[in-house]
């Protein structure tokens, strides 16, 4: 294959033809958005169920009196920081800057791991304080069992997403270290996709933090 053939093959793969409806979005990006939309509906279903159970309950504890708001606010801030580092990683990949990509992706992964660490600490603290999945009590007083059930169901489902995101990012990091996503053209799109997933995880947590912890 001549150099010209290679260049032509590259140009065929490096640019997505402009589409009337989706612009220059890759098929992978459209698929990721569809996944995010259906995953968003899963979270929406959980949050709506939480709302119905809570507002139809005769007794429901004030969440901020049981859950550690300051620690969770810090965890929220960590996720926001990791979202910033993720967009910086995508920028690095677009600019074919492998060092920046690897550095920012590693920072994002650390943010995700720190968030999971805080969640494990919080669960451990709550379980020892009497807030279980099936039965709940707080400072010797029994509280609505649904408080613990809904709390662990929603935050646990989100935590699994964070864990999946961290594993996904580690896979992309390994490819980044080999220079797979900084070859120009649309080679960065895998980083963009993991970025979309990670921002979605952050976006959902914003809602979970508000509706489960603050309200």
């Amino acid at each position: 294959m001549t150099t010209a053939d290679v260049a032509a093959a590259h140009s065929a793969h490096d640019h997505v033809p402009e589409d009337e409806h989706f612009g220059s979005a890759t098929g992978g990006k459209v698929a990721m958005w569809m996944f995010i939309a259906q995953d968003g509906m899963s979270f929406g279903g959980l949050l709506v169920a939480y709302g119905i159970l809570r507002f139809s309950a005769i007794e429901w504890p004030v969440p901020s009196e049981i859950l550690g708001i300051n620690l969770t606010a810090f965890a929220t801030f960590l996720l926001i920081c990791s979202s910033l580092s993720m967009v910086m990683a995508v920028e690095g990949a677009k600019k074919r800057d492998q060092k920046a990509l690897v550095r920012w992706l590693a920072v994002t992964i650390l943010g995700g791991i720190a968030f999971l660490g805080i969640q494990v600490y919080e669960y451990n603290h709550l379980v020892h304080a009497g807030i279980g999945f099936a039965e709940s009590a707080w400072e010797g007083q029994s509280v609505n069992n649904l408080f613990g059930s809904t709390f662990y169901a929603v935050t646990g489902f989100h935590g699994m997403h964070v864990l999946s995101g961290v594993i996904y990012m580690i896979c992309i990091l390994l490819g980044s270290m080999k220079g797979k996503y900084t070859q120009g053209g649309i080679s960065y799109s895998a980083v963009e996709l993991v970025g979309l997933f990670w921002h979605f995880v952050d976006l959902v947590w914003i809602l979970v933090f508000t509706f489960i912890y603050l309200l």
Binding site: H10, E91, K95, R96, Q183, G184
Partner: peptide, 19 residues
Amino acid sequence: PDHNHPAPAADDGHEESHV
């Protein structure tokens, strides 16, 4: 990657940085 004809960067100068 073809070093004689490197593939263009994704932004190709068309996309501005959003940092």
